[in-house]
Amino acid sequence: MTFPRLIAALTMTLATTASQAYDFKSVGAAPVILYDAPSTKGGKLFVVPRGAPLEVVLAYGEWLKVRDVNGELAWTEAKGLSAKRTVIVKTPNLKVRAAPEEAAAAVFTADKGVLLELSESVAGGWIKVRHRDGLIGFVKQSEVWGI
């Protein structure tokens, strides 16, 4: 295979991989810096607070290309992320229900941007979540980002 063909094949492979997210992770115990390149010498774009979910779209050695809740793509070091799963509320005044059904009583209300810990996925498009205050309930997957 010629060098230009090899480069084209690698580029197509990376483009295909980058278009499909394969995982969500959360920022670990300390905030992480997002860069414009997979290097600490790259430009610093912004800082993501601890606990925030990030969608991993590409792994490159010890670096991950991630998408944040706003859809922005950037690079961060893999060591700063955790397998613990969190989600961010997408809608204002989201009612977190006592059971995975619309008619269930509201346990609490979460505003847009609130971070919730993902406990488990439930059938029918619902997930079980936990607020940092210890309250537990159910929300539709479509009402949060990070899953």
Rank of each mutant, 00 (worst) to 15 (best):
L34V: 15
V144E: 09
A9K: 08
A37C: 03
K84R: 11
V144T: 09
E77I: 06
L118P: 13
G80S: 05
G134C: 14
A110N: 02
L14I: 13
A52K: 11
A21P: 15
N93F: 02
G28F: 11
D133W: 12
R132M: 14
T91C: 00
V57K: 10
G61M: 05
R132K: 15
G137S: 12
V89Y: 01
K25N: 05
R85W: 02
T17F: 07
A52N: 09
A15P: 10
G124I: 05
P53D: 06
A21W: 07
K95M: 04
A74T: 05
T40R: 15
A123E: 14
R85E: 08
P100K: 03
V47F: 00
K41T: 04
A37R: 07
D111A: 04
D36E: 07
E72N: 13
S82I: 00
L6V: 08
V87G: 01
T2E: 09
G61L: 08
T86K: 05
K25Q: 14
G51C: 10
L73M: 12
G125E: 12
R132D: 15
D133A: 15
S19R: 09
K84F: 02
G42K: 08
A105P: 04
T17Y: 06
V48G: 02
L14K: 14
K41Y: 10
D111V: 01
S39E: 12
A123M: 09
Y35M: 11
M12H: 08
A123G: 13
V107I: 06
N93S: 08
G43H: 07
H131D: 15
W75P: 04
G80M: 04
A106D: 03
W126H: 02
P53G: 08
V114I: 04
G61A: 06
K95G: 07
A15G: 13
A9I: 02
V27Y: 14
K79D: 10
T13V: 10
S39P: 06
L81I: 06
L54S: 06
K44D: 08
T86P: 01
W145D: 09
E55K: 08
R97D: 02
Y35G: 07
A106N: 00
K95I: 00
A98N: 10
Y60W: 14
E101D: 08
K79H: 01
M12W: 01
G51K: 13
T91G: 00
A37I: 04
L94M: 03
F24V: 11
W75T: 03
G146P: 12
K128F: 01
K41E: 09
F46N: 09
L115R: 14
V114G: 00
P31L: 13
A74W: 05
A29H: 12
M12A: 15
